[in-house]
Amino acid sequence: MISITALIEVKPGYERVMLDALLEVADWVKAHEPTTRGFYISQDSHNACLFTTYERFDDRAAMDRHNSSAAVSRFFDIARPILAGEVTLVTANEVSAK
């Protein structure tokens, strides 16, 4: 299993825009990506501008399909102008899940 963790911070006032954009990706994943095993979205409890996603894929091909999807492209079109900085991505081989 391959995972991606993303740390995404938006400029103040754009929290809802980011949440809606992330939820749109989640809906796409649910409808079109059976080899994406999870797409989890969190919003920091102390800083509403900070979001985390955790994405789980069967394999690298599944991750590549997801990352090159129309949904991810649209997400970044929405996100780029409202980001407070660079998105931090960590791609990893999952070693344990419970």
Rank of each mutant, 00 (worst) to 15 (best):
V95Q: 11
D58H: 12
R37D: 10
T52K: 15
A6G: 01
E55W: 02
F57L: 03
T36K: 10
A84K: 07
L23M: 07
S73V: 07
D27N: 05
A61K: 15
Y40K: 15
W28N: 10
C49D: 04
T52W: 12
N67G: 12
T52G: 03
I41M: 11
V17G: 06
L7T: 13
D27T: 03
N93H: 13
I8A: 03
N67Y: 06
I82Q: 03
N93G: 12
K98F: 14
F76N: 11
F57Y: 08
A70P: 08
V17W: 00
F75P: 00
I8Y: 05
Y54S: 15
L22P: 00
G13P: 05
E86N: 05
E24F: 04
D64F: 06
L22N: 05
L89I: 04
A97H: 14
R65C: 05
T36V: 11
A31Q: 09
L50W: 12
I4M: 02
T91Q: 06
P34V: 05
L89V: 01
P81V: 13
R65W: 00
S69H: 12
F57E: 03
S73P: 02
L23I: 02
M1H: 11
D77G: 08
D44T: 05
D58C: 13
A97F: 08
Y14D: 01
R80S: 11
S73R: 15
P34L: 07
T35D: 07
R16H: 09
M63F: 10
T36S: 14
V25F: 02
S3V: 04
G85A: 15
V25N: 12
D20M: 02
Y14M: 06
S45F: 10
P12K: 09
T5G: 11
V29Y: 09
L19S: 10
Y54D: 06
T36N: 12
D58Q: 00
H66D: 05
T5A: 15
V90E: 07
A31W: 04
I82F: 05
V72C: 00
Y14K: 08
F76V: 13
L50F: 06
T53W: 03
S45R: 15
A79I: 01
A84Q: 00
K98I: 14
V90H: 12
A97P: 11
H46M: 13
E9R: 01
S45D: 09
L22V: 09
A92K: 09
Y54E: 14
S45P: 11
P12H: 08
T35Y: 07
V25I: 05
D77Y: 13
E9T: 03
E86Q: 13
R80D: 10
S68T: 14
I78L: 06
D77P: 03
H32T: 04
L7S: 11
T52E: 08
S73M: 07
A21K: 04
N47D: 08
A31K: 10
G13S: 04
I2Y: 02
A21Q: 06
A21R: 06
D20L: 06
H32D: 08
K30M: 09
D58T: 06
I2P: 00
L7P: 04
Y40M: 14
A62I: 10
A62P: 05
F76C: 01
T5R: 09
V29T: 13
Q43F: 05
D77L: 10
K30R: 15
D77C: 00
M63P: 09
M1G: 08
V72K: 07
E15I: 00
R80F: 07
A48H: 03
